[in-house]
Design a protein around this nucleic acid. Structure first.
Lengths: 119, 119
DNA sequence: CCGTATCCATTTAGATACTG
DNA sequence: CAGTATCTAAATGGATACGG
């Protein structure tokens, strides 16, 4: 969620909508969360899944998710270092949110499945 | 949705999540849509509901929503001018999305209702 | 392997003034 | 009333180099 970090909005109804967006917005957070719902992953795995993300951005987004209590970071003190990211309890509560976003995207945002026969 | 306008992402699964966010992100779009679900509103009404939005931003966000086919703009040729904004069919399909966002926000994002007695 | 630090281009958004 | 124009501040995000 770019813009100012969780700026307190003048909370009229509808504010909760923005409040939620603050957490999942931010160019990569949605996808990161989506992948972490599948399973815990290490940094390099996420990086591969996101493909075009830079190290800097991935780190930054993960840090924000961590700071918002949505993602947990586990450091395994090995050589070479291994760091794993998983969803917290709070993070898991976002499951319905992410899924609704994905469903709408599949149905309305992406071009069109271009079916071979029926339409 | 700030960042680059609907940049085509490398669509792996999870892309649909971002794709949806592209439409409802953007500091005010979520709330604008939320209010338009209630009813059609004119520019000044929306402005009052958003309170801290500037004219420039409200216009910009509405233009993007219009361009994405989510909101319809109706100009009533009167003096003084009256312009009304309403949801399109496509816009209405976002209802479950916005509601899930609102519900999560109410439950997890906002401080805490601070009840007088029970907790 | 998993980051952080720095530099820089782009984008976003606020304030303000003006128009039909 | 409902915008548009301009100017500027701030934030985002990409590239690159370096560190534990």
């Amino acid at each position: 969620m770019p813009r100012t970090r969780h700026a307190r909005l003048d909370c009229s109804p509808g504010c909760a909508v923005e409040a939620t967006l603050q957490f999942i917005d931010g160019k990569w957070k949605g996808v990161i969360l989506f992948h972490l719902f599948e399973r815990t992953m290490r940094f390099s795995e996420l990086r591969r899944r996101l493909a075009s993300v830079t190290q800097r951005m991935l780190t930054a987004q993960l840090r924000e998710l961590e700071r918002d209590g949505l993602v947990a970071r586990t450091i395994h003190p090995e050589i070479p270092p291994r760091v794993e990211y998983s969803l917290t309890e709070r993070g898991r509560t976002l499951h319905p949110v992410i899924m609704v976003l994905k469903d709408w995207g599949d149905m309305h945002a992406l071009p069109a499945p271009a079916p071979s026969a029926a339409a």
